[in-house]
Design a protein around this nucleic acid. Sequence first.
DNA 1: GGTTGACCTTCCATCTACTGGAAGGTCTAT
DNA 2: ATAGACCTTCCAGTAGATGGAAGGTCAACC
Lengths: 132, 132
Amino acid sequence: MNIGIASEKSGLPAKTIRYYEDIGLLHPARTDNGYRDYSTADIHRLRFVQRSRSLGFSVDECRQLLSLYQDRERDSADVKAIAKAKLVEVDRKIAELVGLRGLLHHLVSHCHGDERPDCPIIDELAGQGMAQ
Amino acid sequence: MNIGIASEKSGLPAKTIRYYEDIGLLHPARTDNGYRDYSTADIHRLRFVQRSRSLGFSVDECRQLLSLYQDRERDSADVKAIAKAKLVEVDRKIAELVGLRGLLHHLVSHCHGDERPDCPIIDELAGQGMAQ
DNA sequence: GGTTGACCTTCCATCTACTGGAAGGTCTAT
DNA sequence: ATAGACCTTCCAGTAGATGGAAGGTCAACC
């Protein structure tokens, strides 16, 4: 299977698939003309990575998950540990963004937003506005 | 004022301050020995950028905000537009992460997490689990 | 048989926002 | 004079791709 088809089937751009090969996530065969030749197992791996990435796992975490995926003897505890760590991380990011949102919302709602130059947003960024 | 002091006063690492100069966010004077020499106005700019960055504005947005900050004739509407766009972006990110969190939480809570190899997390990532 | 166009290949550069480190100059204190 | 705490520039690396150039391959059409 050529890379174009692999791209279609996995939902990943060809560029990205080559990149994943560069960094050692998979090792497709080559045909005589030098073209990459993807097996259905390769496609499964690509889809696996695509899903993991879209769930917010880093490429390195994908590498670990992929090796667990391919290990029929794995402990589910190992997988769960990675997912739990990611969950904690996502929770932290959400809390951070919610705080940010509150601050931004406050600023936006207090700026009259017309042609006059005085602006509570600038004042705040300059450290002259509300306490930070 | 040497860069070390500027770093202390602005809360930014010296490396980062030099980087901000590289990309044209500020242009401190130089003393005879070639050392950067920061004025209090430079410190205000640095603090301004530091606060803006911590509120999630990109360096490029900081550049715009900084030029508005320094423009006594600015329209507050221009500042508000940037802040509102950022607010929308933050909202979008939060929604995405909350969705992610739900999925991860579901996966984590359904994985028994012991020494057995069967694992709903892997199943899901492989596309064999719950619908995606 | 020639040519067009859609593929594929590699390699190199670019993006964001820094950060680390090497090699070397300067300043201050002892 | 020398230690060590600064400062300088420059180069490389991080994550995770993405864009583009230069060139090879393949299938179809005239």
